[in-house]
Design a protein around this nucleic acid. Structure first.
Lengths: 184, 184
DNA sequence: CACAAATGTCACAAATATGAGACATTTCGC
DNA sequence: GCGAAATGTCTCATATTTGTGACATTTGTG
């Protein structure tokens, strides 16, 4: 029964990802919990948001790290990490969103920002190999591909929400769109 | 000086696109205007939001319609409408976002929904031609490509906001990612 | 300059969101 | 079934957001 805290966090990620300033009652509803209970686990909005970020960073870091270690081939690594990104779903996109907000000033001094950077260090490093060895040609930049990656995850999430496509089909489609889209 | 109303709408689209429940003061700030002035032009939040949607639908509809009429070749049409989508920028993505929200129930009876549908009628019709003639193969679905289209627009906007890429370069990159990503 | 329109400043009431106390009810392990 | 922990209900104080009136200031125009 102690997974209430976790389910609130999951709900918050879902809600805040759509509506950053949504009232906490929406989060509580999504978690099928009272606002009162939510406040028993989280002192205030800021604390909830912080826990969300921590959860997100952890989940993404673990998934990415695991995927990275499945193979030594850069091309296969990219694919493995891509699927890991899909599996992280809205956690992945929310993390990315928080760091591309209009008023967000990215600075390495910020603890959360540096953790964010670290999360994608492996990803970007691997990507750089593919770029320099010419497997990915064109005028592709790391930033573009990073954004593009996140965007394809959004497409995947949307398709899953609608239920129009099976998970396996959607995963294949996503990888097709991503890999071809960056010129592999 | 009467473009104050318009600049508030533009500001609102920018802010609401990032944070749907953002306080109106943020919109006023973005428009470099007092909250008091904002309320002189818009009775309340709902009226502002409605005007935003109207503006968005109009802008997207005009841009798409123009692009459609530049050529009769479906393949070229797709490209022209793609660039039109880029030019609509956040208007395009905000419109799409509003209709993919978790709690949004899409129903043709709804006036705004039907207008939204109409906006992309041409786009989807043209796409269907490309699908049935086999120019786009794979297990691609219209919905997937539609979502994918919107996502690439987001990537484009992000790259422009950062200023890392010139507009022309970004447009080319975007078209590359999109066209290859759907298997053209 | 003078005048009118637009905007800003300040003040304020109403609505909504937030956070927490007190106590009832439910849930779970034993 | 008992007791403890978790959760819900109800209530309330406070903070924030919202919308508007009254009046000062700025801006554009003749």
């Amino acid at each position: 029964m102690k997974d209430t805290e976790q389910s609130i966090i999951e709900a918050a990620i879902l809600i805040f990802n759509e509506d950053l300033s949504a009232p906490l009652e929406k989060v509580a509803d999504q978690a099928q919990v009272t606002r009162r209970t939510l406040h028993r686990y989280f002192k205030d909005r800021k604390e909830l948001m912080d826990k969300c970020q921590k959860e997100i960073r952890k989940a993404c870091a673990v998934a990415m790290s695991n995927a990275y270690n499945t193979t030594e081939n850069p091309r296969e690594r990219l694919e493995a990490m891509f699927y890991a990104g899909l599996d992280c779903g809205s956690k992945n996109t929310f993390l990315h969103k928080l760091h591309t907000l209009h008023d967000h000033k990215h600075q390495a001094a910020n603890e959360e920002c540096s953790e964010y950077d670290h999360t994608f260090e492996l990803w970007k490093g691997n990507l750089q190999v593919l770029l320099t060895t010419g497997i990915i040609n064109q005028g592709m930049t790391v930033d573009w591909i990073h954004n593009f990656f996140q965007s394809v995850v959004v497409v995947f999430i949307n398709s899953q929400q609608k239920g129009a496509l099976g998970r396996t089909d959607a995963r294949q489609l996503a990888w097709f769109s991503f890999s071809k889209g960056i010129g592999i």
